[in-house]
Write a protein that binds this DNA or RNA. Sequence first.
DNA 1: GTTAGCACTCGTGAGGCTAGAGTGCTAAGA
DNA 2: TCTTAGCACTCTAGCCTCACGAGTGCTAAC
Lengths: 376, 376
Amino acid sequence: MSGPLTERRQTILKLVIQEFVDTATPVASETLVRKYRLPVSSATVRNDMAALEELGFLTHPHTSGGRIPTDAGYRFFVENLMERSSLSPAEQRMIRHQFYQVRGELDQWIQLACAVLARTAHNASVATAPRAEQLRFKSLELIAIHETMALAVIVFHGGIIKQQTLPIEPGRTAEDLRRAAGLVSDLLADSTLSRVEELAAVATFNGMPLSEFERGLVDLVARAMMAFEEQTQEQIYSDGLLEMLSQPEFLPASGRDDAERAIERMRRTLEILRSGRGLGPLIPQALASGGVQVIIGGEHVEDAMRDYSVILARYGVEGAIAGVLGIIGPTRMAYPRSISTVRYIASLMSNLLAELYNLNARPSEVDVDDENAQRV
Amino acid sequence: MSGPLTERRQTILKLVIQEFVDTATPVASETLVRKYRLPVSSATVRNDMAALEELGFLTHPHTSGGRIPTDAGYRFFVENLMERSSLSPAEQRMIRHQFYQVRGELDQWIQLACAVLARTAHNASVATAPRAEQLRFKSLELIAIHETMALAVIVFHGGIIKQQTLPIEPGRTAEDLRRAAGLVSDLLADSTLSRVEELAAVATFNGMPLSEFERGLVDLVARAMMAFEEQTQEQIYSDGLLEMLSQPEFLPASGRDDAERAIERMRRTLEILRSGRGLGPLIPQALASGGVQVIIGGEHVEDAMRDYSVILARYGVEGAIAGVLGIIGPTRMAYPRSISTVRYIASLMSNLLAELYNLNARPSEVDVDDENAQRV
DNA sequence: GTTAGCACTCGTGAGGCTAGAGTGCTAAGA
DNA sequence: TCTTAGCACTCTAGCCTCACGAGTGCTAAC
């Protein structure tokens, strides 16, 4: 009885989604005909809508009141109906300019990426710091703070640094510290955590046993690496919470019943962004796959995420360092624009990292012309 | 007609506040008598309440329904009625333990302080990073990332570090970089930003003119210092948003009218914490004064803050480095507990910093036994 | 100065009602 | 077979009313 998914029905689905994304209110047949000057009557549209509903692409909050898309509807839209868009040249220029202003300031990049994502897509953004598959030690510097305290700056491959203070014996000179740091730097050069631990166990360098102090430094590095892995494991940067909460989904549409639910939704959303629960499982997935990932509402494993869509892309330099960034918002979101935004920022970040790493490396898999991106 | 502020009336004010803080609902005369077994009748309490209302300490949302404290009521409570409390030894131990676990990891301290504050006081916490009155250069390290890119790690007094990448000419050896970094480190040692700029203008070291590369490094340091000042100027760490938003103030008490207002409040609160507007002016004030600052509701300059109370304390090492940390929440908050929490965390952070700086320095002005703290 | 008693006020929540929006269906037309 | 006009039906939002109950303010007695 549902009938085939004719061309016109696809158009109607597309228009319903477009309209619903714009207005956030259920879409009526009449509205569609009027607004888009359809060459058919509202009754025909109603029939098609009913068919789309039977196909599972639309639904009906109440008998009266228009249609809204289902998750399956969005999914079909994203995969088949959506026109690929990109940010306007003016927007691209503005974004590039902002990144240009923090060139060199590695530690600002993620925050900026989050800020730009959020403001451009009008939803919350998330990102993980770029991570090497394997944290690799690069060098150690020791700077005396006063007679009994020094600051250790541990540099890892990829411009990642970690600071750590350590107590020292009063007697040590700056030259002492420099020598010890240099020796440990040479000993541990390019080591992964497990290699550092091996070397700590052996505790010799070129056959010479390490001094007490040097052994302490090696341990310090090992501990720092462990702490670092732990910290970055789950740390998710985020921005644009306010941006997302300004979406009509978080306004009480009517009745105090709904109001309480709106607040509850708000609180749960905060919880999601703060804890990263619900996002956690998606990260490795996004890291593994290329292209842009779109997860819509009920497709999430986590129940708490059922009302949200997430758009994620991997960024980084193939084989060297990678992170994930993206957008989270209500399922009703401007998918074409959001997807292009995520794609653009990911490629920008990839380029920045590529430059940092090695000018010759291919930026990454998420490129503006990558057909994978369209895939999802 | 209002009559004097007798002992009993003060007790009643105190009980009303206590009860209101607990229950978040207006306090009725009858409730007070029953719950605290007052040796007088509810009528007497009502009379006293009326007097307290005329004195400006209590108010009346509606004719029926109990009393709630005014800002002035809270102020009087905080200054005269409140018993000084401190955190339980068990809590103190737990908190100290958490700080112990990140000892050495300077960059984690503020975040931890915020987290602990929020969880202990059940409200949002804010903190600024510890800042030297004058940012002073300590040393520069250069680490080659690859042939044309290096990472500069700039260390300032007080364990503050800033990283920055810079492009280099392909020819430079690691030894080159080390030498140049060492020279610039010596040249700029202990300089403030203005001094660095002076030295950049002169561009000589011990009478010898600096090389192109070395001049570039000096400029880099100057730019990094400027960037740093700018970034930390307004940056306010925060945590416990969710904690605060779980307070009944952010629930719609009744009617959909109130629901909308609740959401609006929520949104405005987010805005405050994100932008730091409303908090901004309080920071220098808190930095300047010792002790614990309590600003209650309408006492705020900023209109947007009229519904919130803020408790701030300075932390740091006298004459060397200082920051501010505290709590923000609805005016209805557990002042005694919140104040002791803020005081405790501030003194803890001060001790940590003192240790980092110099074991002999006096921690700071906010000590557990400091009578200043009670002052406000 | 304190208390019992009581009238009065007002917010809350339930219930009922109306208007309006939008659908589903039916029967006629292309 | 597809499209369309017409119309009954459904459901929600918004409004009004009403009754209940909590808590006060006042008065008069102690």
